[in-house]
Write a protein that binds this DNA or RNA. Structure first.
Lengths: 210, 210
DNA sequence: CACAAGAAAATTTTCGAAAATTTATGTTTA
DNA sequence: TAAACATAAATTTTCGAAAATTTTCTTGTG
């Protein structure tokens, strides 16, 4: 792995977890000392992150962490619903034993991570579970879009998840989702997925208003 | 505009037009003399193009122009159908006078370019027409995906378009599409768009087989 | 005092050399 | 001859200084 790849991973994680807050200018000299590398790999990483809308840049004025807003959250969620419902439908049509096993394994790992309560790992297992559902869709483009939208929406989820008290059986939703997918219910599973994402959006919107 | 932006535009155009053929290694020294600039802006451009799947790279082995294949063409076309039919549906629901005027203008310009027969301009007007249809969808993500998929599919269209003799009233299809959109027929217009893209795919597939 | 003009500082962008890595070439050995 | 190994060449990646640009500060002017 090159330094540029490391820079990409580090910056991406720090932005998704909110450690680099929305709107913050990303000064090259500051990044250089923070990540301990030269300009080149950092700039290459920033250019990649720009294509994923995690950072924005203006010509000759450098990069900033992409800002957050409720309208943009809904944009990302609705795009995600469109892409992932179709990818899930395709996966249900095309998925084989390996696909099924991947879902079972990811659901199990997600449950364990949730029980342990470590947010670091939980976040990763959650993304992996949702990816496992659509892994058999057969379209690199859809998987690509899903990955980017997952990162974009995670930025809204992470800060809210911490202080969330209202009761919601998230693991139950995940289990129902997995069951519908494994039972090849090509209409029900995508519908559940859409509800799942939109419900999360409403939860976030409610807390951001307060 | 920075040099990196220029490099991005130049490389993107040369790849889309096939002037840099699929699979060709993109050696930095060669690009440096071709585009007359240093390593940095070129590498930044290549990193952006990688996110758009126009180039692929392996760690420490540099970049190559992304290869073409019939399965990947269909992947791109089907993803494009998914994204643009939804974006068109949304535009029909939300579009205002400016959106309508944009379609009329783009269709007119496309017709003129087609009559003149200059492939350079025709390609640009064609992309602009399809963009104008979905311009009012209100989702930056969908517009972004559409732009990338348009570039990906254009790579297949361009080389075939040259020697295409079989009769097809493309301008008629475009006019029908514009009319259905302007008449706010939210079911018919997306259906026409899907047929339009898939028909192009079949045309290309037929010629690539031969 | 508000505002423009100019200088200084901070920052981004670009360059080409140096370091790291891969690929090609040649040599030895079984 | 074929495989293993060393060596050389080619290439990518990274670095830090130099150039270009923007931002901030200072000064002068109406």
């Amino acid at each position: 792995m090159t330094l540029a790849d490391t820079a990409y991973d580090s910056l991406r994680r720090d932005i998704m977890r909110g450690h680099l807050p929305p709107g913050q200018p990303l000064r090259l000299e500051a990044l250089r000392s923070r990540y301990d590398m030269g300009f080149s790999p950092l700039r290459e990483a920033l250019n990649r992150l720009q294509s994923e809308r995690l950072v924005v840049s203006a010509s000759m004025k450098g990069f900033i962490v992409a800002p957050l807003s409720l309208p943009e959250m809904w944009e990302a969620i609705e795009a995600r619903v469109l892409v992932e419902t179709e990818a899930l439908r395709l996966s249900i049509l095309r998925g084989d034993d390996v696909w099924e096993a991947g879902i079972v394994a990811a659901l199990h790992a997600l449950g364990r991570a949730a029980a342990r309560g470590e947010p670091e790992a939980l976040e990763a297992r959650h993304a992996e579970f949702h990816l496992s559902l659509i892994a058999a869709c057969g379209s690199g483009w859809l998987l690509d879009f899903a990955r980017k939208l997952s990162a974009a929406t995670e930025r809204y989820r992470a800060p809210v998840l911490a202080g969330d008290t209202a009761p919601r059986d998230v693991q139950g939703e995940h289990a129902a989702l997995a069951e519908a997918a494994l039972a090849r219910r090509a209409d029900e599973a995508p519908a559940l997925l859409a509800v799942h994402y939109r419900r999360t959006g409403e939860r976030i919107a409610a807390r951001m208003a307060a």
